[in-house]
Design a protein around this nucleic acid. Structure first.
Lengths: 336, 336
DNA sequence: GCCCTCAGGTTTTACGTATAACGTCGGATC
DNA sequence: GATCCGACGTTATACGTAAAACCTGAGGGC
């Protein structure tokens, strides 16, 4: 359609079908039983089809007072993890007549960007990852129904939370390495202020404190393979006894650790065991395949959306963490 | 804010400030110079702040007749490539007061899903990847200003196109392998109906046709590491002279080829050279590092957004393909 | 014959905003 | 002293839709 010609409204359809605008709204809104004859309804539908009528959503949203649209706020989409979260959330949303708009807190645009300026859509609610720190304050200002993903359940007052059982995943990873005989660890931690990473550190510290003669170094890195390479290389070549196992906060950090090991001439898993968290496609693409904590991203998204629907309907969201599972592969072995 | 209490409107602000609703709109819309006194303007702003007023975007969009929101339709976000496209598009959009809504054509929800049902936002325009085939027909039905990414410039009548110079990238890769001495190729092609992949096949065929005694096999695979593993393993163990070089349609397919080579006991690059397209983080994480065609995703997104802005303003979009660059790394070497 | 019901519509209104069109009043101009 | 004008507002209207309220005529029950 040319830019000059304006798109048809329900009034145009009404005129073409020889009925009132109200009749069009009734028919197209499927509320015509007992109000409009079968024949007239068909005439209206035909006119709408002929004109290529599409309802003006701004007008509908204004009239209805809601949009059936929710915003999913995530950090920059550098892995497929949040794609899975989106897919799960979108599936549940679609089942309930909702749409999901994705807002990846964009790198390089600066923290001042307001997600609601981006989503000019009026919104009914928000699901936000606690990793999207930049966007979080703006979200609070909107006073919209909110569900937080992987956020401190106690600290996020008012908002419902849906969490993966990350602590259990770290517990499984630590237990696995301990039972292989490892005692000297490097924790390669994500340098991102988010509860989901804090809990990893806490759980690891707690678990290792239970076993005598264990040591743990901590290195911090931004979440990227290159960043992790630098951090891991520095930490592994630091003076003192070298750790025999590296517990990484996610798979990207583990990939960086692989690169560091190659540079340092260390063989995985013989010289160094490595674990990750996420179970990205990357994990099984690497050589050796990575032992990592599998997270069910789609289920995470589904649970997030269900929780938001519950909030919107004034129900209490389902509680309970989402279970995770350590996938034992070839990157872990007894220390030499 | 409790769900029961309704959010304040500009009329509420007007009442609180003791002025008319029009004055509020003037002040908040920054159009009050010479129409409202400084003092009154300040009073209005204060009242708005106190009440926590946020304009109703549905009403604004209806009144204005546009939304300053565009939709970016991409395939499932399994790599960071389209994250880069989004970042670039969002940056340019922000500079012009636009927002970008991301629609990843979700796997597992089925092809019938309508992206416009998802983005209840009324939209001013659409940028769509030709890879998001499921969504394409729905897009056409909307008759919105449209820019296609990596789509057949001749075939997509009416829509502006912005393309990466993929043909040149394949040319560089083929030339690189030919000059190393390779003559027997495997083309591991993405099994996705999109111009961007068709052009790879065409360019490769054209380039190899110029050199005598070359052979090329083609294998098709869905775009995933696991899919590529199966396809590459089958193609490389098929009867006949084994290819010495594999040209992959993207880096994920290359990663699958690495796995296949490991299974078959082939050493990269001595037994097998491999190239990809995309230059994902994955490319330098693999061992050996992957020779691949670097695509500037952010520039791609920027150009897409600029083209859409041009269409919206009835200007002619900038033409010309975006240059790409082969990154020669360690996965290619002369055949043994 | 009168009232009621019901099918099959129409008229009207409201959602919240932006802005065009319209006052009004005091002071400067001729 | 009539006229004009700028500062400072207000009133009224339109955007397109959904739906409540209203209308009309025909058939049925008593």
């Amino acid at each position: 359609m040319a830019r000059g010609s304006t798109r048809p409204t329900s009034r145009d359809v009404a005129q073409a079908a020889g009925v009132s605008q109200a009749a069009v709204s009734l028919v197209l809104g499927d509320k015509w039983r007992g109000r409009v004859s079968q024949a007239t309804a068909e005439r209206v539908r035909e006119a709408a089809r002929d004109l290529g009528y599409r309802p003006n959503l701004a007008a509908r949203n204004l009239r209805l007072g809601h949009t059936r649209t929710v915003l999913l706020v995530v950090p920059a989409l550098t892995t497929e993890f949040f794609a899975g979260v989106y897919t799960g959330a979108a599936r549940i949303a679609a089942e309930h007549g909702f749409g999901v708009v994705l807002y990846p807190s964009p790198e390089g645009i600066g923290p001042a960007r307001d997600p609601f300026a981006s989503a000019q859509a009026a919104l009914d609610g928000v699901i936000a990852s606690s990793m999207a720190a930049d966007a979080l304050t703006a979200i609070r200002g909107e006073a919209l129904p909110l569900v937080m993903l992987d956020s401190d359940p106690d600290g996020s007052l008012g908002a419902a939370t849906v969490n993966l059982d990350i602590a259990d995943g770290i517990r499984q990873a630590a237990q696995h390495l301990l039972s292989l005989g490892h005692r000297h660890f490097l924790h390669l931690a994500a340098d991102v202020p988010s509860w989901t990473f804090e809990v990893r550190a806490q759980e690891l510290a707690a678990r290792l404190a239970e076993v005598p003669d264990t040591t743990v170094r901590t290195a911090r890195s931004p979440i990227s393979i290159e960043g992790a390479l630098a951090a891991a290389e520095a930490a592994l070549s630091a003076p003192g006894a070298r750790p025999t196992a590296v517990i990484c906060d996610d798979d990207q950090l583990a990939a960086g650790t692989y690169k560091a090991a190659r540079r340092l001439g260390l063989h995985i898993p013989d010289d160094l065991s490595v674990t990750g968290v996420d179970d990205l496609a990357l994990a099984t693409a690497m050589d050796p395949e990575l032992t990592t904590v599998h997270l069910n991203a789609e289920l995470f998204g589904e649970r997030g959306m269900r929780a938001l629907l519950a909030v919107l309907e004034d129900r209490t969201p389902e509680s309970g963490n989402i279970p995770v599972q350590l996938m034992v592969r070839s990157s872990t072995a007894p220390p030499r």
